[in-house]
Simulated assay, not measured.
Amino acid sequence: MKMQNFKYEGSGLNRFFGPLEAKIMEILWNNAEEMTIKDVQQKLDKEAKANNFNTVMTVMNRLVDKGVLQKKAVARSSQYKPVVTREAFMETQSKELTLDLIEEFGSLAVTHMVDALDKVDPGLLDQLEQKIKEMKKDR
């Protein structure tokens, strides 16, 4: 599942989701079980200002449409759960973003990524070197 809108100015989940979407996804990822709209609304209300039930319902159903939530009818309500874990979601999105950057900018993107490794964490450069060696050996 590739998210269509990536926001450079955001951070974490806010790069992929709107503010309320990100909060809802965090709640669902942090909860071990499926949740109803009302369950999510109550958790949101504990964290911040009150959110209208219809607003939460609309946002959760949009997340279903985007393919990040599953919806299951149970009795007279619906249960929601994430399609993948937070870690798997971030893994997929970072991979898609990297591929998009390399497709669009080619070697420039790779060069900038390598330059950034040294600035962010010099140990990452060693990990990259090891990964390259492994890939070459497997060819």
Results as ranks from 00 to 15, higher is better:
100 D>V: 10
9 E>G: 12
93 Q>Y: 07
85 T>P: 01
52 N>A: 08
55 T>W: 04
115 D>W: 08
108 L>W: 06
139 R>E: 14
40 V>F: 01
100 D>M: 13
35 M>Y: 03
46 K>D: 10
73 A>S: 13
27 I>A: 05
44 L>Y: 03
94 S>W: 09
95 K>D: 11
125 L>G: 12
118 D>W: 11
128 L>T: 08
112 H>R: 13
35 M>E: 05
38 K>T: 02
129 E>G: 05
75 A>D: 12
12 G>T: 00
85 T>Q: 03
16 F>W: 15
91 E>Y: 14
3 M>S: 09
136 K>H: 09
26 E>N: 12
101 L>G: 11
91 E>F: 11
104 E>Y: 08
125 L>A: 15
84 V>D: 14
83 V>E: 13
54 N>S: 08
75 A>M: 09
32 A>E: 13
78 S>C: 09
46 K>W: 02
87 E>I: 06
56 V>C: 02
116 A>F: 08
95 K>G: 07
114 V>K: 10
49 K>W: 02
131 K>L: 11
33 E>M: 12
64 V>D: 05
135 M>I: 14
15 R>N: 09
72 K>M: 12
28 L>E: 03
104 E>L: 14
80 Y>G: 00
12 G>P: 03
11 S>T: 09
35 M>V: 10
23 K>P: 00
128 L>W: 09
76 R>G: 04
35 M>Q: 13
68 V>T: 10
77 S>G: 06
63 L>W: 05
30 N>D: 15
42 Q>C: 03
78 S>V: 04
91 E>H: 13
26 E>S: 09
102 I>H: 07
93 Q>R: 04
86 R>I: 03
124 L>A: 13
64 V>M: 08
